[in-house]
Structure formats: C-alpha cells, structure tokens
Design a protein around this nucleic acid. Structure first.
Lengths: 262, 262
DNA sequence: GACCGATGTCCGATATTTCGGACAAACGGT
DNA sequence: ACCGTTTGTCCGAAATATCGGACATCGGTC
C-alpha cells in the first residue's frame, strides 16, 4: 500500500552481499530464537538474506555438531542439544544465577505459581530464569526475550537507583506505549518507582496482560543498587492475603540473593 | 591394533591447516565445554590448533553476539547468555524434556536429593537434566557429559531392550573399566539388566564414586522400550527405608513421563 | 497429465577470510 | 632497570568458502 515504502529494516551488508559463515550462523540462530519455532531452511535463508545454497551448507555443518536438529521430518530445523549443554555451562558459571536457580525453583515449587529471575540488558528488561507454577494455563514469559522496562513490575525496581531525568533519558519514549496501545504516564511510572523503593517490592496489575498481576522484589548489590529481581506472575484475582504471603516469600529470597550478607 | 584399520572417523584436515571460521568456532565451543571453565584465548588457540590471530578475530565476533563473555578481567572467555537463551529454546521445544523438567524439579525439591533425567547418546550415557538437592556437598554429574554405560545405574535400564550379545557388541569393551581401574564383569552387568527389567528400577552403589548410590527408574515409549531414565543420586549410607520411598517416587514420575497414557 | 512451487544437491569463479608473522604494550620476576 | 613472556592488534598474500544459478525430485492442484 501507499507509494514510497522504504522497507529496509535489515540494512546490514555494506558493500557486497557476501558475508562470513560465522556471521550467517549468528543471524540464523538469532532468527530461530526470535521465531521460537522449528523453521524451514529456505525460510531462514530468505528471512536472513542468506543465499539458499549457503544456508544448506551451514545447516548441514551445524546439524552435525548438534547445534541444530532436523525436526519432524518435514524439512524444519531448530536448536539442538549442544545449545543446552553450553547454556547450562553458562548458568553454572555465573554465581548469582546459580544461586537464583535454587531460589526460583524453590519458591515456584512451594507456592505453586510461576516464578522468575530478571535483569536489565541495555535499556530493556530481560527474563533470565523462569520456573512455571502448577497452574494448567501457564502464564510465563519466555527466556531471553527483551521487553520494555515500563511494561513490567521488575522494571520499576531495576532503575530505582537513577534520578528522574536520568530515567527519562534512559528509557526510549516508545517503550511507554503498551502492546494494546495505552500509554503509561511518565509521572505515574516515576511515582511507582519511588513507592517501590520505600516498600521494598512492586505490584503491577493488568499491564501487559489484562488478567495478570506481577509481584517483584529487588536483589541488591553491596552498594544497594538493584541488580536483578525475583518475581511471581499470578492471576489478577489472587486474594490479597495470598499475595501478601508471596511478597514475603519474594523479599526473603531476594534478601538471600543480595550479595554482602552471610 | 592389528593391520586392518579401515576408516578414519575424523578425517577433518586434509591438505593445509586452513579451516572455515565456523569449524573453528565449533572446536572452540566444544573445547570450552570440555574444560568447563573460563579459558584464556591463547590457550584455546593452542589447544584447538587454531592460529592465534584467527582465534582473536573469532572471539571478538562471538563476544559481540553474546555467545561468549570476557570473564574476570584477566583475559579469559567463557559461554555467554545467548547460549542460555538458545538452550532454553531447545528444552522447551522437546516435549519429553519439557515434561521431565517439571518432574525432576518436583522430586528434587520434595525429596531434597539430587535428581536427574538421562538418555543415551550413541553408545554413551548422558545427563540431560540435573537438579541439585538440598545437601551441602552437592553430588551431581555435569550436564552434557558423556559417560560409559556400565558406570551408571540408568545405563542398565537404557539397554534393556537389547539381547545379550547385542549389548556386548554395542558397548565398547574399555567402557567396562571403572575410573579407579576396577573392571565390571560382563555377566554381572547382564544380570543387573535382567533384574532391573523385572524389578522396574535399578540400584547401584559405589560404582563411579565409593560413597554414592544411584537409584533409577525407566521412562518407556509406547512399545515398552526404555528411552530415558529418571534417577536420584544419594549418599550410600541413606537408610533402606528412605531409599524405598525414593524408588516409589521415581517409578511414579517415570510412569507419568512414559508416553502412551492419559 | 501437465503445471507450479518448494526442496535439496552440485559446480565453477572470484571476492574474501584465514593465516603467519611482525610489532607494541603490558606484565612479572630478578 | 633489565629481560623474557604473554596479550592483543595489524597487515598483505593466497588459499578457499561463499555465492549464483542450473538441475533433478517430489508433491500437490487444476
């Protein structure tokens, strides 16, 4: 529609179309991660701007290394077991994450609701660990997906060390617009942050999802700066009493994860 | 030995030392996985036979993509967060593994001992999921590490669909030698397998580790073939009573994971 | 049965990436 | 302060990996 669509979102290659295999592979993996589903080789080639013959060649190599796996029997590929091994090595190698796994698993199991461990990545919010609760209808974000800070409860904790105008500069303006088009007022957002700091936790309801409430508590470093959060994702109609219990649970876990205590 | 060695399975380098970037990257990641620790770039280059300048170039690319991370400030690198994201995508995409995560997390939490989910990879045993228990001294194998089948309790279940001589052909002879040099008698091993099949579980003690007992139960496909196991790793002095309870727990979990039931 | 689109393989040419080696800077021991 | 070792960057040359396009298959549709 319309006339002059510019339409270049990619804009990667500079001179020629030729690229290194490794760069093609990175684009390939990134693409699979964003699609989050087994994908046909030809589609990957098209969507990443990789020549078809090159993509076949690379996929063969990666399948052999178990980085990728052929799925189903239709010609789709997706991540293979090697990624799981390498990812586990990463989790084990980061002290805070290793401890957080224990906490998240524990509170998700005992409380029975989805629990998460989150941090910032640049100016976006990021779910690092996610442990689904016992509910049938799992409410849970996906690991490794970046989300605008204002959309989340945790986001209100993760920037609470910044001054007001610092925050305004830090968060891209468009990130205050929710998926449904509503706009979060910056003042209210800043108020939330202030209240969160004094209360030691945050609660948000019906932000990204109309029927979901998020409860989050801050993990702080020795200097008191919020470096991560631990949180519950629960149905909005959860009783106030139950929510209070979860908040206490979160605060206790967050405290245990905060470096600089015995 | 003897004369007639036929095939080289490796057969990688043919003429020159030159290799594709992607192959060097695969070797790099494999090396980090086997070392299981942040490693200096020069060391990786030496140990993988990659030219130093090439390795630096590749590492820079991979660090930018978050596949790798510079650690500590000394010049070591290790896996980065991207691996965790891709690995999580893999786990979520495999039906049996996704269900197994729930079971393993649940029984590890409720029983308080290390629980694992294991399969075969070729002719080796492989830990796919590992959830540490509440013990101080964590007894737990590492994810993604291959182990000879006879060294493990689960191994005795995973080959129980094969005939005796089929098993003898399947398992490399050297795999019957334990880390401490002791040799597992093939007959006893085969007996173990038979007993396991009738009992519906396996117990082994002081196999790889003198003070450790493993309890394992089979996950079977619709045809009754053992496709995976779920198991506990506990101290050898755990009371018989407690072990019986764990065996029941394992059998129940394994049953839930076995495809072909409501 | 002819047509169309998608899948996977193969091949030769050339633009490019790998490689070796040189170099500067940082480090550490004596 | 001296010297040997290690880390990280840079550069030109040449071996080769990427690319485009052709081709053979397969499956579904009209």
């Amino acid at each position: 529609m319309k006339g002059g669509g510019v339409a270049e979102k990619q804009a990667e290659e500079k001179s020629t179309g030729r690229a290194r295999g490794i760069d093609r592979v990175i684009a390939l993996m990134e693409h699979l991660h964003s699609r989050r589903a087994p994908t046909r080789i030809a589609d990957i080639a098209r969507d990443t701007g990789t020549p078809r013959s090159t993509m076949y060649e690379l996929v063969n190599t990666l399948v052999e290394a178990r980085w990728l796996e052929l799925r189903d029997g239709d010609g789709t590929v997706y991540f293979g077991p090697a990624m799981h091994y390498y990812g586990s090595d990463y989790l084990d190698s980061v002290d805070l994450i290793r401890k957080a796994r224990v906490e998240v698993a524990h509170i998700a199991e005992t409380v029975g609701e989805t629990a998460q461990f989150c941090t910032l990545d640049g100016d976006k919010y990021l779910v690092v660990l996610n442990e689904p609760g016992r509910r049938m209808f799992r409410i849970s974000s996906e690991i490794g997906i970046k989300v605008p800070i204002p959309w989340t409860a945790s986001g209100r904790l993760l920037v609470d060390h910044m001054a007001a105008d610092e925050i305004r500069r830090f968060i891209p303006p468009e990130d205050f617009v929710l998926p449904d088009g509503r706009r979060i007022a910056e003042d209210e957002f800043l108020e939330d942050i202030g209240r969160a700091r004094t209360q030691g936790y945050v609660r948000t309801t019906a932000l990204v999802d109309r029927f979901t409430t998020c409860l989050a508590a801050p993990v702080r470093d020795a200097a008191g700066r919020c470096i991560a959060t631990i949180c519950f994702v629960v149905p909005a109609d959860t009783t106030e009493e139950a929510q209070q219990g979860m908040i206490d649970t979160l605060k206790a876990s967050a405290e245990r994860l905060s470096p600089g205590r015995p």
